[in-house]
Amino acid sequence: MTTPTPTGAPRTDLPPVPLARPGRRVAAVVVALLVAWVIHVVFTNPNFQWHVVGKYLFSKEILDGVKLTIELTVSAMLIGVSLGVVAALMRLSDNRLLSGAATFYIVVFRGTPALVQLIFWYNLAALFPRITLGIPFFGPDFVSLSANAIITPVIAANLGLGLCEGAYMAEIVRAGIMSVESGQREAGVALGLTRAQTMRRVILPQALRVIVPPTGNQIIGMLKLSSLASVISVTELLSAAGLIYTRTFETIPLLIVASLWYIALTSVLTLGQRAIERRLGRSVQDTPGVSWRRPRRRAQPPVPE
């Protein structure tokens, strides 16, 4: 076959024609049909009972459940992040006992199902009927209370979810700290800063860039994980819906109500996460494969001069 030679001088006014991609068009048509079918089914099948969904979406019981779900998520994450930072710093310690204790904590609480931990804390009274505050082995006891009085279902849920979360956060924080180049620490201490000052002002702020994205995922995960508390009679969002449908047998519409709230809450969290990431990205170099910041959001490109 011979290549036809262009006649005359090359022209600059020839319009480029994009390559036809028939496979992609077929796939798009198939997807469009599927979407249409799903929409059709969802809105024509009377068993979805959309009017029931509307009736309960903003009912007081559901809203109370939403409130408790948010509270559980916030407090469990606060416990988890605090424990995670402490456990991560302990794991990175040169002292074998400190790092060993942190490793043990992570192995136990990351290695058992959150559901088991929740039920365990809920039944703590079986193990320790009385909870006593004092100095172990030697000292006087200051307070002694019945475990059943202290460990309410909500407390048990907070303990279970928070301790479990701490084990995951410990690994996330540790990865973040280790991602900061060792030269940053050396520069800090060489200037005469203490190790704690260097950690707080130099290392942790940079570790945040690595810590925040997975922590956002953890918060979203926690929001949904908190539904486990329904098994220990905490009336968060899922059990609030459950309490209604065991009464009315409107199971599907109430699960839809709960799901809509979970989606709404996770969407809000996702937006917040993006905003924080963008803020943290201010000092980040846009190196491909290193930066997780979305380059097109940048105000001005870096101009090394």
Partner: peptide, 28 residues
């Protein structure tokens, strides 16, 4: 720390604090 503060060190890889502006690097 007090002894180290009297000794300035400059590194091969600069090691400027990446999370701070130039001014904050110098004043920290």
């Amino acid at each position: 720390c007090a002894s180290r503060a009297a000794i300035g060190m400059v590194f091969q890889r600069f090691n400027l604090f990446q999370n701070m502006t130039v001014l904050d690097n110098v004043t920290l």
